[in-house]
Amino acid sequence: MDPRLAAVRGVFGVLGRTAPALATALAARAFLHVGRPAPVRVADRPVHEEARRGVLTRGGDEVATYAWGDPDAPAVLLVHGWQSRASAFGSLVTAVTGAGLRAVAYDAPAHGDSGGHVRTALGDVEIISRLTDAEPGPWAGVVSHSFGSLAAGVAVRDGVPADRLAGIASIAAFRFTEDLFVREIGLPRALRARFTRAWERRLQDDPAATPGAADRFDLLARPLPERVRALWLHDVGDRMVPQSQSALLLGAHPHNGELVTTTGLGHSKILGDAAVLTRVVDHLT
């Protein structure tokens, strides 16, 4: 085990027993902390610099938007993961535009070139809705990665027009992210509900973050409509989001879902794999 993680677990284990209020407050702060924005990777820089850029504002923060390809072509929306950015889809942008489609993406709040300090799935859904309103027609498809896949899936389920959805290293329900975080830092399980209330209080200035709003982000209890054809792609060795999450999604969508598993790509390399890109583009077209 990483010595730093062992130390964190030790601290939260002790605080959880001796000072539970402080333990849950610190855990909530860490849970919502995004960290320093990821830079554009050298391999993705040419695609990043070719983008047509725009800006929209949410809650006083500027959100960077991007578009590639023929402005009159059908559009595919790309939603990136946690501690990532739109340019992480560089290889996919090339594949999508090469297939005659237009790619649209954004840097989520506190990510990439966007402002802000906090990212929530609620914020992503609002941004997706606003980008949708600016489109002349429905999306040709939505492609997402990791944390972004949950927000994208909920947005489509709740009415964003798209009949094709592709999720890479997807998360099935928001409560999984809470469970994973609590387990990772060693917070006593008895403080699980208290931890939830603590991070919800930290979002009290966001009008969309009402109590229980996180339960909306569950694609197992509330799956996609059957008209939406869903493709999930997940590596069996993903150490960040286990492949079982996509298997659960497939089980919740027996008539309109498909699961493709890979080996040796992990959580991030899967985004640039040629075979994965081909499957995604085939699904969209």
Rank of each mutant, 00 (worst) to 15 (best):
A7E: 07
G10C: 05
V11S: 06
G16V: 01
R17T: 02
A19I: 00
T24I: 10
A28I: 00
R29G: 04
V40Q: 02
V42P: 04
A43I: 11
D44F: 13
D44N: 13
R45V: 01
E49S: 13
E62P: 14
T65G: 10
G69Q: 08
L77V: 11
A86W: 11
S87C: 03
L92Q: 06
A99N: 03
A108Q: 14
A110L: 15
H111E: 09
H111V: 10
H117E: 12
A121I: 08
D124F: 12
S129F: 04
R130M: 10
D133M: 12
P136D: 07
G137E: 05
G141E: 12
F147M: 13
V156A: 05
G159F: 07
A166Q: 07
I171G: 04
A172Y: 02
R175Q: 07
F176V: 00
G186E: 02
R194D: 08
R202H: 10
L203F: 09
D205I: 11
T210K: 05
P211D: 07
G212W: 00
A214D: 08
D215I: 03
D218P: 06
L219D: 04
E226W: 04
L233V: 01
D238R: 15
R239W: 09
L248T: 12
L250K: 14
A252D: 01
P254A: 00
T261H: 12
T262S: 15
H267R: 14
T278P: 01
R279K: 00
V280Y: 11
V281S: 11
H283A: 14
